[in-house]
Simulated scan of single mutants.
Amino acid sequence: MLIAQHKKETNIAEYILYMWQIEDVIRSNNFDLSRIDEAIIQKFNVEKDTQYEIKLWYQNLIEQMMKEGVIEKGHLSSVSKYTNELNNLHNSLLTTIQDAEYQNAYHKAKDDIKVLIIKSGGEAHNEIEACLIGLYGFLMLKLKQAEISEATKSAMNSFSTLIALLVDRYNKLLKGELHLSKEKSN
């Protein structure tokens, strides 16, 4: 809860990835709040009131996941909303806004994105979700200390660059600082 709040305010992509990880933690603990409390919540070095708030947060997530039917796979609608917002901004940066720096980063990542969309077997509903799925999978491989190919590292580097620019533009949009390009290429 504490980490999620901070990430949501500072880096929406990290928030999405963090929430995907939380969903997986809930699944791996079989939606059992007492197991999550023992394994995770009690290890937070915070006041009892804050621990109670964290436990309540997990309980709400468990209930939401069950209600939305994302028990075995999938993501909470409240998290997917941000993925869709990022994808809408992504499309605008490429077309309406015509952000040259962003367009350049996209062209470097485009082929790897297309490959990942195909490999995801329909799990990735758009290009930004594909990048996030790739980055999440990369994180899981690193945590498992699995061997990672140079091609995968290169693709993840291009995804990371693209997502970092997208988050920057997202933050500017929220502050009212994102502007249309003066030059149009279409």
Score class of each variant (00 low, 15 high):
Ala4Ile: 11
His6Pro: 11
Glu9Cys: 08
Glu9Arg: 11
Glu9Met: 13
Asn11Lys: 07
Ala13Phe: 14
Ala13Lys: 03
Tyr15Cys: 12
Tyr15Val: 08
Leu17Lys: 02
Tyr18Gly: 03
Met19Ile: 07
Trp20Arg: 15
Trp20Ala: 12
Ile22Leu: 15
Ile22Glu: 13
Glu23Gly: 09
Ile26Tyr: 01
Ile26Ser: 00
Arg27Lys: 09
Asn29Lys: 09
Asn30Tyr: 15
Phe31Glu: 02
Ser34Leu: 13
Arg35His: 12
Arg35Ile: 09
Glu38Thr: 10
Ile41Tyr: 12
Phe44Tyr: 15
Asn45Pro: 07
Glu47His: 05
Glu47Gly: 00
Glu47Pro: 08
Gln51Leu: 09
Glu53Pro: 07
Trp57Ile: 01
Asn60Phe: 07
Asn60Leu: 08
Asn60Thr: 01
Glu63Lys: 00
Glu63Pro: 05
Met65Phe: 12
Met65Ala: 04
Lys67Arg: 06
Glu68Gly: 01
Glu68Cys: 01
Val70Lys: 01
Val70Ser: 00
Glu72Val: 13
Gly74Met: 08
His75Leu: 15
Ser78Arg: 12
Ser80Leu: 15
Lys81Thr: 04
Lys81Gln: 06
Tyr82Ile: 05
Glu85Lys: 10
Leu89Asp: 00
Leu89Asn: 02
Leu89Gly: 00
His90Ala: 00
Thr96Glu: 07
Thr96Leu: 10
Ile97Ser: 01
Ile97Phe: 13
Asp99Thr: 00
Asp99Gln: 02
Ala100Trp: 04
Tyr102Arg: 00
Ala105Cys: 04
His107Pro: 01
Lys108Ile: 05
Ala109Trp: 00
Lys110Asp: 04
Lys110Leu: 12
Val115Ala: 04
Leu116Phe: 12
Leu116Lys: 05
Ile117Asn: 04
Ser120His: 00
Gly122Trp: 10
His125Ala: 04
His125Lys: 09
His125Met: 06
Glu127Gln: 13
Glu127Val: 02
Glu129Gln: 04
Cys131Trp: 10
Cys131Met: 11
Ile133Thr: 03
Ile133Cys: 01
Gly134Asn: 06
Tyr136Met: 04
Phe138Gln: 00
Phe138Ala: 02
Met140Trp: 05
Leu141Arg: 09
Lys144Arg: 13
Lys144Glu: 14
Glu147Asn: 02
Ala151Phe: 14
Thr152Ser: 09
Ser154Pro: 13
Ala155Gln: 10
Phe159His: 09
Ser160Trp: 10
Thr161Leu: 06
Ile163His: 08
Leu165Phe: 07
Asp168Pro: 11
Tyr170Met: 03
Asn171His: 05
Leu173Pro: 03
Leu173Asp: 08
Gly176Asn: 02
Glu177Met: 12
His179Thr: 08
His179Asn: 12
Glu183Asp: 09
Lys184Trp: 10
Asn186Ser: 12
Asn186Pro: 14
